[in-house]
Design a protein around this nucleic acid. Structure first.
Length: 317
DNA sequence: CCAATTTGACCGTC
DNA sequence: GACGGTCAAATTGG
């Protein structure tokens, strides 16, 4: 799928590479900065490889309109037997639209991350830079904490279908399992962010099937934490309200593809702290509709993979 | 007054 | 029927 996210991600990667190149140029004459230069070269190389991967993916998939846009134009209003618009048909249509929307939502890509917030924010909910409106919360079987349901605040005005579910972890109250569904179609929101030189949100994605990055196996989020692995990908950012993610894990599901070899990784924002940021790519089980919990995404039966290239973002911007 | 949140009810899926 | 997800009326807060 060629989405605003792909494009946004690509632009960030290129901007990042550009900035790193600038830094490299600035440090070229300084013999004492040789190590730093070498590091920059590696980072630029990684960013460019990543950009190529995303560009290839976008090229292979071609431009696409979100499915719900196409359908919306085809859906015709219902008229009563006298050829007049009736209150009843309006209700029927509304109900139909609701069902359609439900179906569309189910076909939207879905991915889960784990976000660990700092102790001082333990009572809050992780921020991700987007504006969400809570539309429900529910007790989920087998979990101690209620799951919160959020949708983009622009869902009404722009028809943005992005939703997310936030579930506090039973094991660690500082950890949230955040399941995103659908991408933000409220582009002005994204573009506004792109104009901010210091990005505050850094979700982006690509698919593993096209990824040319080295991979290393991992088994679980907690295990990764225990091993204190090096940050796999991160971006700099300005402080974003109260969000200080220490660890973020991804699993991605695209129900349209039904192909577990495809997944995505995403750079996330990196607040100016000394802590490392983690994220991992993990093929998500797609059978979770109606039965699974967010936790399922983190206990896959198969080995997961981490892209291991790293970018030291503390030197950027 | 408007926007966001809460909460019980409803619906679809398994 | 149980469960997860969503709706929408009521409530709250700025």
């Amino acid at each position: 799928m060629c989405s605003a996210w792909d494009l946004s991600f690509l632009m960030r990667l290129l901007a990042q590479a550009e900035e790193q190149t600038r830094q490299l140029e600035a440090n070229l004459g300084d013999a004492s900065a040789a190590d730093h230069c070498r590091s920059l070269v590696q980072q630029i190389s990684s960013a460019l490889k990543e950009a190529v991967s995303v560009a290839r993916l976008m090229d292979s998939e071609g431009p696409q309109q979100p499915a719900w846009h196409g359908n919306a134009a085809v859906d015709l209003p219902r008229w009563n037997s006298e050829g007049l618009w009736s209150e009843n048909s309006e209700t029927v249509l509304k109900e139909q639209e609701r069902r359609e929307m439900c179906k569309k939502r189910k076909t939207l890509p879905k991915w889960t991350i784990q976000v660990q917030i700092s102790g001082s924010q333990a009572g809050g909910v992780p921020e991700d830079g987007y504006s969400w409106r809570k539309y429900g919360q529910k007790e989920i079987l087998g979990t101690r904490h209620r799951r919160g349901y959020y949708r983009c605040t622009r869902s009404n005005s722009v028809g943005c279908l992005a939703t997310k579910q936030v579930q506090r972890s039973d094991r660690d109250p500082c950890v949230f399992h955040v399941t995103y569904r659908g991408e933000h179609t409220c582009l002005d929101n994204l573009q506004a962010r792109l104009h901010d030189e210091a990005p505050t949100i850094l979700e982006a994605r690509h698919h593993l099937q096209d990824q040319q990055l080295p991979l290393c196996p991992k088994t679980s989020f907690m295990e990764m934490q225990d091993h204190n692995l090096v940050s796999s990908f991160s971006f700099p950012s300005t402080p974003l309200s109260s969000f200080e993610p220490k660890n973020q894990i991804f699993s991605y599901t695209n129900p349209m593809e039904n192909d577990h070899s495809s997944s995505f990784s995403s750079p996330f924002m990196s607040p100016p702290t000394s802590e490392s940021n983690y994220f991992a790519v993990s093929p998500c089980q797609t059978s979770s509709y109606g039965g699974g919990t967010a936790d399922a995404a983190f206990k896959p039966p198969h080995v997961e993979f981490d892209p291991i290239f790293s970018i030291d973002t503390s030197k950027f911007f």
